[in-house]
Computed example of a mutant assay.
Amino acid sequence: MPNIKKIAVPATVSAGAAVALDVTPLLGGEGREGLLFGPSGGLGTGVVQLQGAPKTAAGVAGTYTTLMTLNSATTFPVEIPDLPNYIRANVTTAPAAATELTLEGVQ
């Protein structure tokens, strides 16, 4: 089973695409945890809010809340103790280029 999900980080100030955490061990809303790895060159001057949302009754993402803020001082990997059903990167200060974060499930 896949235990990795890629989270796109846009190169502009905007929210990235939602990523459903719907496979074991990345099963959001089930009290599971994950490790977040940054890009090999780091985020540089970029500032990214990692945001999560619960699943609504219709099975889509609800309201996003900020789980943590990532920047050049962030030491990866970062533990996310309680994975949400959906996760995304919300860029508040644009990095030099679009990149991605890697979320690895912990069994």
Rank of each mutant, 00 (worst) to 15 (best):
P54M: 04
D82H: 05
A18L: 10
T65M: 00
Y64W: 01
R88W: 13
L50H: 02
R88M: 09
G62Y: 06
T99V: 07
D82I: 08
K6P: 01
D22L: 03
L83R: 13
G52L: 05
A20M: 04
T75F: 08
G46E: 14
F37Q: 02
Q51F: 03
E104A: 14
A94W: 04
E30D: 08
L26V: 07
T63M: 04
G52D: 10
V13K: 03
G46F: 13
V47C: 06
A61I: 02
T93Y: 00
I7R: 08
A96S: 15
L101T: 07
V19E: 15
E33M: 13
M68K: 06
I80M: 08
A96K: 07
K5W: 03
R32F: 13
R32V: 05
T92E: 10
L27W: 00
G42P: 04
G62S: 06
N90S: 11
Y64R: 02
T56V: 03
T12F: 04
P2E: 10
T102G: 09
T56P: 03
T45V: 14
V60T: 15
Q107I: 07
E30F: 07
P81T: 13
G34E: 08
L70Q: 05
V9T: 07
K55E: 15
G59C: 05
T45P: 11
A94K: 06
I7K: 10
Q51P: 02
P95L: 09
V48D: 06
P10S: 11
D22I: 01
Y64P: 01
S14M: 10
T65N: 03
P95Q: 12
T102Q: 13
A8E: 15
V23K: 11
A96P: 00
G34L: 05
G42A: 08
I4Q: 07
A53D: 10
I7D: 09
G34M: 05
Y64T: 03
L27T: 12
T66G: 00
A73E: 12
T45Y: 02
A15D: 09
T24Y: 14
D82V: 12
I87G: 12
A8G: 06
L83Y: 14
T63W: 02
L70C: 03
A58S: 15
V23C: 03
N85I: 01
A11E: 12
A15E: 09
F37G: 02
T69E: 04
R32D: 13
A97H: 10
Y64N: 01
A58V: 04
K6S: 14
G16V: 11
A73S: 15
K6T: 15
D82E: 14
A11S: 15
E79D: 09
L70D: 04
I87Y: 14
L101C: 06
A11P: 02
P95I: 09
P10H: 14
P39A: 08
A57V: 12
A98M: 05
L67K: 02
V47S: 06
S72T: 12
L70A: 02
T74D: 09
S14D: 15
K55P: 02
G29N: 00
T24Q: 06
T74Y: 12
E79C: 07
R32Q: 15
G42N: 11
K55T: 11
E33N: 12
A11C: 01
L50Y: 04
A53V: 03
